[in-house]
Computed example of a mutant assay.
Amino acid sequence: MATAAAAEAIDAAEGKGGGGRKKLILIVLPLLLAGIGAGLWFSGILPKLLGMGAHDAAAGHGEQPQAEAPRPPVFFEMPDIITNLNASGRRPVYVKLRSKLEITRAEDAAAIQTAMPRLLDLFQTHLREMRPEELRGSAGTQRLREELIARANIAVAPPPGSTQPAPRVTDVLFLEMLVQ
């Protein structure tokens, strides 16, 4: 159908001379190729040829590709931590922290329990270096959360050369944080 229209346009242009025919071919040919390409794309032939058939075909029909169902988070209860902060002045300032660790797999709870002495040491050491001003506001709490997540992942990492997968702590949830 498109080729018939192109042929009619070429025949009409032949009556006008050779220069008009070249211009018409330069205009009609790209339009014809674009039409053929669009037809192949929307029919699903071109994506299959390009190796995108399975993913794009499912997306084009409103179907989602089969993926593994997300696992619900697993929470690990941490013991309460009470320690002094790095306060200037004569009066000591204490922090009480009650928290939970969010981990990716329930099987990692045993590895976290094994690493608990190291985990508590890293948490307390970091808290003792903090000043009370650093814990004020949501920004201070967020910075503390990020530091504790990093320290928790260091504490629960398996020894070098181990073949077991490393447990991963994805979040630290503060249940209670009192600064006094």
Results as ranks from 00 to 15, higher is better:
residue 139 A to D: 02
residue 61 H to N: 01
residue 45 I to G: 01
residue 132 P to C: 05
residue 85 L to T: 06
residue 132 P to N: 02
residue 128 R to M: 14
residue 76 F to C: 04
residue 47 P to M: 06
residue 135 L to I: 12
residue 28 V to M: 08
residue 130 M to G: 05
residue 66 Q to E: 05
residue 107 E to L: 15
residue 95 V to D: 00
residue 82 I to E: 02
residue 118 R to T: 09
residue 68 E to L: 10
residue 84 N to L: 07
residue 113 Q to D: 13
residue 148 L to C: 09
residue 117 P to K: 12
residue 125 T to R: 07
residue 48 K to D: 04
residue 49 L to E: 07
residue 28 V to G: 01
residue 119 L to T: 07
residue 55 H to R: 12
residue 69 A to N: 03
residue 112 I to G: 01
residue 46 L to M: 12
residue 67 A to W: 00
residue 29 L to S: 04
residue 47 P to L: 03
residue 127 L to N: 00
residue 42 F to Y: 10
residue 93 V to E: 09
residue 144 L to P: 13
residue 120 L to C: 05
residue 28 V to R: 11
residue 130 M to Q: 14
residue 151 R to D: 04
residue 98 R to K: 08
residue 48 K to A: 09
residue 107 E to S: 15
residue 79 P to E: 06
residue 103 I to N: 04
residue 121 D to P: 01
residue 33 L to P: 03
residue 96 K to N: 02
residue 76 F to E: 04
residue 131 R to D: 06
residue 33 L to T: 11
residue 92 P to I: 07
residue 117 P to N: 10
residue 44 G to H: 04
residue 155 A to D: 03
residue 140 G to N: 00
residue 151 R to V: 08
residue 81 I to P: 06
residue 65 P to M: 12
residue 42 F to I: 10
residue 46 L to S: 09
residue 54 A to P: 00
residue 120 L to P: 01
residue 135 L to Q: 05
residue 148 L to W: 14
residue 82 I to A: 08
residue 94 Y to S: 13
residue 99 S to Y: 09
residue 134 E to F: 11
residue 40 L to T: 10
residue 57 A to V: 14
residue 59 A to K: 09
residue 58 A to L: 12
residue 54 A to I: 04
residue 25 I to Q: 02
residue 55 H to W: 13
residue 137 G to M: 03
residue 139 A to F: 14
residue 121 D to G: 05
residue 141 T to H: 08
residue 79 P to K: 01
residue 104 T to S: 08
residue 71 R to W: 00
residue 121 D to S: 09
residue 147 E to H: 11
residue 143 R to Y: 09
residue 149 I to W: 06
residue 157 A to R: 15
residue 63 E to W: 15
residue 88 S to T: 00
residue 131 R to M: 10
residue 143 R to M: 12
residue 46 L to E: 01
residue 71 R to L: 12
residue 40 L to K: 13
residue 136 R to A: 11
residue 103 I to R: 05
residue 52 M to A: 08
residue 79 P to W: 00
residue 45 I to A: 11
residue 50 L to G: 09
residue 87 A to F: 14
residue 27 I to L: 15
residue 90 R to Q: 14
residue 139 A to G: 05
residue 68 E to Q: 03
residue 103 I to T: 13
residue 134 E to A: 10
residue 75 F to I: 08
residue 80 D to L: 15
residue 128 R to I: 12
residue 65 P to I: 06
residue 103 I to P: 04
residue 124 Q to S: 10
residue 146 E to W: 06
residue 52 M to N: 00
residue 138 S to D: 05
residue 145 R to W: 04
residue 112 I to M: 01
residue 74 V to Y: 10
residue 47 P to H: 02
residue 50 L to V: 06
residue 35 G to L: 13
residue 119 L to C: 08
residue 73 P to A: 13
residue 131 R to Q: 11
residue 49 L to S: 08
residue 65 P to Q: 09
residue 131 R to T: 15
residue 105 R to Q: 08
residue 66 Q to A: 12
residue 100 K to H: 03
residue 70 P to A: 11
residue 38 A to G: 10
residue 45 I to R: 07
residue 79 P to M: 04
residue 55 H to N: 01
residue 102 E to H: 07
residue 127 L to R: 03
residue 57 A to S: 13
residue 140 G to Q: 00
residue 102 E to M: 14
residue 55 H to T: 11
residue 60 G to L: 05
residue 85 L to N: 05
residue 151 R to G: 02
residue 35 G to F: 12
residue 96 K to G: 02
residue 119 L to W: 09
residue 54 A to L: 02
residue 73 P to R: 11
residue 41 W to G: 06
residue 135 L to Y: 08
residue 101 L to C: 12
residue 30 P to I: 01
residue 150 A to R: 12
